Computed example of a mutant assay.
Amino acid sequence: MTARLGERTIPWRHLDRVAPPALRISIGVVFVWFGVLKVTGDSPVAHLVGAAVPWVDQGFLVPALGWFEVALGVALLIGRLPRLTLVVVAAHLAGTFLVFVQAPALVMTGGNPLLLTTNGEFVLKNVVLICAALVLLGRVEERRTG
């Protein structure tokens, strides 16, 4: 299937080859970037991490989580151990929803889950990243069994 864009024909079949690695790399860049911000103490969401896991010392947790995110991001960038990495990425992102349970006032206005704060929107977007990781995981499994 092709489409015309001006005078140029776009072969959409190439997207099937290019999009999954681009998605994997873009998620890897985001993980490295956000992880480095946590390691350097510059993360604007460090308070959310603390609110989600209040029983762990924040001076330890935030940088440790940052290094973990950097490691996941690098693993995504180099493409090693894709099944394990993508499962861990999805699980890690699912863990961000702890803040909805532990500190709902930070993510919802007046306890209403339909009225999210900026923090709530930031966390909610992880649904898309989880789905992206699952799509990539499905592609890895498809190649493995196909």
Rank of each mutant, 00 (worst) to 15 (best):
A91E: 04
H47D: 13
S43H: 01
L5A: 10
G41P: 10
G35K: 00
A91H: 01
R83L: 05
Q102T: 14
E7T: 15
R80I: 04
R4H: 07
I25Q: 01
T40R: 14
L81A: 14
L114Y: 07
V128K: 03
F34C: 03
V62P: 02
T96M: 13
T117D: 14
I10M: 12
A90M: 10
A64Y: 04
I10N: 02
T96A: 13
L84K: 01
A64V: 13
L5M: 12
F60I: 15
V87Y: 07
L106P: 06
S26K: 07
F97V: 08
N119L: 04
L116M: 15
L137I: 07
A90K: 11
P104I: 07
T9E: 15
R144T: 12
T109G: 02
L65V: 13
P44A: 02
L61Q: 10
G138C: 07
V101L: 14
V30W: 09
F31S: 00
L37N: 04
V107F: 05
D16P: 00
V127D: 13
R4T: 15
K38T: 00
L37P: 01
T2G: 03
T118Q: 13
A103E: 08
V39K: 08
G28V: 00
L81N: 05
D57E: 13
R13Q: 12
A75N: 01
M1E: 11
T85H: 02
I10S: 02
L76Y: 07
V89A: 09
Q58I: 01
L48T: 03
L136Y: 11
P20A: 09
K125M: 10
L137Q: 10
L65W: 05
P20C: 06
A105F: 03
G110K: 06
A103L: 09
G111I: 12
N119F: 09
E69A: 00
A22C: 13
E142S: 11
L124H: 01
G50E: 11
A75Q: 06
L136R: 12
D42H: 11
N126Y: 06
V107W: 06
E141T: 08
L137H: 09
K38R: 10
G110I: 09
A105E: 15
L84R: 07
A90G: 06
C131F: 15
P113M: 03
I130L: 10
V49Q: 08
L124D: 09
M1G: 15
V101R: 07
L65M: 14
V140K: 13
I78P: 00
V32R: 00
A64M: 12
A132P: 11
